[in-house]
Amino acid sequence: MCSFGVVFLRERLAKLQIAAVSCAAVGIGVIIVHNGGLPWVALTLPLTFAFYGLLKKIIIAQPMTSILLETLLISPLAAGYLYYLSINEGTVYQSCDMNTLLLLAGAGAVTATPMLLFTACARKLPLNIVGFLQYISPSISLMIGVLIYGEPFTGTTATAFGCIWAGLALFIWSQIRR
């Protein structure tokens, strides 16, 4: 996402920010070399989110209007998929109790709130800052996996995340110095 800000929005990076991006790129490179190829799923998600962030940045609309338009665009696909499920495999809506249905309905509000906040903030922050904030979630997921679920923390993982976290530290330091 940081590179999208530089390429598409002509944002400039300070020297420390360039070093931060380089550290994160080395960390990602370590994972690519270790896996023996590009992790397509792991790259597709951040790329689609980078495009999403870029669109949020350049489209001039209030956050609520933006989310409404997104919902209107995706609703026909979602409705079609739910219809397909209902005639082939069944859906949770057909077989669950009222409490579960209420929780599912409430999940919409729980999902929409962060999206509204993201939309409001993405317009006010440079895209490179939004991009670096995206490294927080995978770091939290890694911690949960290792500390709670006992997943292995290999030397490769330590090297990759060490580079990424060093990049985050440099980026934070560059923002503090500003």
Rank of each mutant, 00 (worst) to 15 (best):
V21F: 11
A25H: 05
A25P: 01
G27F: 01
I28M: 07
V30W: 00
I31R: 00
I32Q: 00
I32L: 02
I32Y: 03
I32E: 01
V33Q: 05
H34M: 09
N35A: 02
G36K: 03
G37H: 05
G37P: 05
L38P: 00
P39R: 02
P39G: 06
W40G: 14
W40P: 03
A42I: 04
L43T: 04
T44F: 08
L45Y: 06
L47D: 05
L47F: 14
L47E: 06
T48M: 14
T48N: 08
F49W: 09
F49P: 01
A50I: 04
A50M: 08
F51I: 15
Y52V: 05
L54E: 01
L54I: 04
L55V: 10
L55E: 03
L55P: 02
K56P: 01
I58Y: 07
I58P: 07
I60E: 09
A61P: 05
Q62N: 13
Q62R: 13
P63R: 06
M64W: 11
M64T: 13
M64H: 08
T65V: 14
L68E: 09
L68Q: 10
E70M: 08
T71Q: 08
T71I: 11
L77A: 12
A78M: 13
A79G: 04
G80K: 14
Y81E: 09
L82F: 15
L82K: 05
L82E: 13
Y83C: 10
Y84R: 07
Y84I: 07
Y84V: 02
L85E: 10
L85I: 04
S86C: 00
S86N: 13
E89K: 08
G90M: 09
V92N: 06
Y93G: 08
S95L: 10
D97F: 05
M98C: 11
M98F: 12
N99H: 14
T100C: 11
L101I: 13
L101T: 03
L102C: 08
L102A: 14
L103F: 11
L103A: 13
L104E: 12
A105Y: 14
G106S: 14
A107Q: 15
A107M: 11
A109L: 15
T113S: 11
P114Y: 03
M115A: 06
L116R: 05
L117M: 10
F118H: 12
F118Q: 09
F118G: 03
A120R: 11
A120N: 11
A122H: 04
R123C: 06
R123G: 11
K124M: 13
L125R: 04
P126Q: 07
P126K: 08
P126L: 06
N128I: 03
I129T: 05
G131L: 06
F132A: 00
Q134R: 01
Q134C: 02
Y135F: 15
Y135N: 00
I136L: 13
S137T: 08
S139I: 01
S139K: 01
I140L: 12
S141Q: 08
M143D: 10
M143I: 10
